[in-house]
Design a protein around this nucleic acid. Sequence first.
DNA 1: TTGATTTCTGTTATCGATAACAGCGCATAA
DNA 2: TTATGCGCTGTTATCGATAACAGAAATCAA
Lengths: 332, 332
Amino acid sequence: MTVSRVINGRSGVDEETQRKVEAAIEALDYVPNRVARGLISSKTQTLGLIVPDVANPFFAPVVHGAEMTARKAGFRLLLCNSEGDLRLEKEYIEDLVSHRVEGLLIAPAGDQSRHSVFPLMRRGFPVVLIDRALPDLDCDLVVSDSAAGARRLTDHLLSLGHRDIAHLTDADDTSTGRERLRGYREALEGAGLPFREDLVFRTTVDLIGGYRATQQALALDPMPTAIFAVNNMTAVGAMKALRERGLSVPEHMALVCFDDVEHLAVLSPFLTVIDQPAETLGSLGAQLLLERVAGKSGPRSRRIVLQTDLIVRLSCGSVSGVPLRPDQSEEA
Amino acid sequence: MTVSRVINGRSGVDEETQRKVEAAIEALDYVPNRVARGLISSKTQTLGLIVPDVANPFFAPVVHGAEMTARKAGFRLLLCNSEGDLRLEKEYIEDLVSHRVEGLLIAPAGDQSRHSVFPLMRRGFPVVLIDRALPDLDCDLVVSDSAAGARRLTDHLLSLGHRDIAHLTDADDTSTGRERLRGYREALEGAGLPFREDLVFRTTVDLIGGYRATQQALALDPMPTAIFAVNNMTAVGAMKALRERGLSVPEHMALVCFDDVEHLAVLSPFLTVIDQPAETLGSLGAQLLLERVAGKSGPRSRRIVLQTDLIVRLSCGSVSGVPLRPDQSEEA
DNA sequence: TTGATTTCTGTTATCGATAACAGCGCATAA
DNA sequence: TTATGCGCTGTTATCGATAACAGAAATCAA
């Protein structure tokens, strides 16, 4: 008991005793057992973060933002990689809960993640979703405005004269994919152009998916003049397919996508993108979660939609001779 | 007690009772408390993994490999990001130990990490180092053969006629940096060329560091004809500096580095690199650690050095008119 | 029928930290 | 002298799962 008092810096311990205890701790390499502490207080000071792909450079700042915010509040963050696999994601959720993390920050693998998340919510377990919403699930949420971003990217392409714009997206099982598709469609319709289902290519939103979808897009006759990839890795896959066909950006094909990634931007400084506030996504998500854990947030769920930035580079060329206008850049 | 028996699938429970218990578990959303289980058994079935930078694409497969191996053995992996900061690294180590992870897999931030790692070893706590060794620390270890890789990269440049080869590396506080510098030096001396300290640029081994070091290298007179960057991010920084000076690879400058990263390779298909078996680094490290946790490994420490692959692309041009020989590629 | 055995379920004690409280010694006040 | 308070340290009970064992009911053997 006295040892416990010393460790936790409580008052009521003689200075002499305190010194003796500290000496003993030093001599024995004693490390207090947080497992036991967590058991009695049911406070593990730990949050869980599940992302579909730690290897995706978009998630690096998300993780970083969440971690910093958690640390500042004296919480640590357990990071798990669901690999976009619903089964694995469910396993991790159960695992983290049984380890008594005090709350979960989840970037869901897909719409079906709701079956894993809903039981948590029903129990009143603190959960915050980031990056992707789940259908029919009234949960704290931090996302960026995908539809608006997609509209801006598409408008940008339209303003440069592009009419046949291919869109590479996922199999309609994420809110981000749906919203970006909606933005794409709205921009087309706003310009009085028809929405063509044959220009929408559904695939896995990674390098290989982008590669294959682009191959299909290039097989169209006439070939589209622009490609709007739903995220960075899909765009990289598109680059690969284009290069193999001897097509270069922006001369033969315009290419735009979501997510600005520093090292990709250096290597392909021509890519026009929508930049999401990834670090903010993570830190705001963690903040909402911490509030909920502390019981400071009411029963109502909070939905935060962050605005995005259009960064115009050189990847869009011009179809009808309309020149590139660098002043369109809205980069900060 | 009967509930415990049902959960753990022990025998000696009536079928009827078992069904009732399972129904109750379902109805109550009951999740067993691993904290309590860990307390009594002191088996948390958890390993810790500390890496200096989760955002570095090199570490993504390392993490993945370690995670897969841990999972297969019924362990989970807590991932922590030390950001190359010794203080943060030390904090995470203490944190994970007090959470009673059963072993630690550490990619150390730098040589000074030994002050955090040594006390663990003294206590007999299971630790395995990956990617980087620590001086005077006799610890299980999985690294790749940096010196040999650096020799091959340098030999490749020499064989193409390059003589003034700049080397971008860190401030001599990681084993990988030292070993790569040694390989570079040995290759030069093997070719009868002097080792020139003025061609070695010490910096932080990230994008900004590579950028600044390259600016310095380009200020030399005569300018080097080749740059050997110690890792992928440093090379990306070099690309940025080169482009700003209007220099392109390989026409004006050869560029080689360690680490092959898929999406970077797609965007810069000219980069000649040493490919480290990153996933193997993670999975072998986890395997050694699991053996040590299980007490299956003796007191002697095991040191595994993995061989690397030279992947020749087009980034090295030729100074003296020696043509590129594509058959030099040793890609699998 | 009675003791032995098997099958099943419940009790007690334990892991380590700590909340709540008990107890001891000493000092000051009445 | 006795009562009251304060400062310090130790005891007991607790968190939840489970090992070890105890006990109850049913079955079997003699």
